[in-house]
């Protein structure tokens, strides 16, 4: 079983408050290796510089949106297998369906609780210790 502290997570959102929230949630679960980026472009760059196991990304962002980031990750061989959880608003069924086509691993509806966040991550990696 993977331990949260061994998993590096990249949080991508153009809102600092959401990044902080996700980070706080992750820390509560036991994650320690957390980096963030303010948009898809910066997220991709961060990932290419230093891979992560999991990306939690918003959809609506300037420069490169969440779907764009997902597609870019899936087409860059070294980081192709990075786990990807899309943050989405409540009504975005379309978005999730499109994200599935591009190989999203899971989705997370805003607003969310820490328990949901954990469940969504465990949906990708299996139970965390």
């Amino acid at each position: 079983m993977p331990a949260a502290k061994d998993i590096r997570v990249l949080v991508v959102d153009d809102q600092m408050s959401i990044r902080l929230l996700v980070r706080a949630g992750l820390q509560q679960i036991g994650f320690t290796d957390i980096v963030d980026a303010p948009d898809g472009e910066a997220g991709l760059k961060a990932l290419l510089d230093r891979p992560a196991h999991l990306v939690i990304s918003d959809y609506n962002m300037p420069k490169l949106d969440g779907l764009g980031l997902l597609r870019a990750i899936r087409s860059h061989e070294p980081i192709r297998k990075t786990g990807f959880i899309m943050l989405t608003g409540r009504a975005d069924t379309d978005l999730v369906q499109r994200a599935v086509q591009f190989g999203v691993n899971n989705y997370l509806v805003k607003p969310f609780t820490v328990a949901t966040l954990k469940a969504k991550i465990e949906g990708v990696f299996g139970p965390l210790t």
Binding site: A3, D6, V100, G103, V109, F112, G123, G126
Partner: peptide
């Protein structure tokens, strides 16, 4: 918290060889 109603979604697992 639950998710999007009526959406058939199975999380895609990733194996971690940490």
């Amino acid at each position: 918290d639950a998710g999007i109603d009526g959406l058939d979604f199975t999380p895609q697992t990733v194996s971690l060889d940490l």
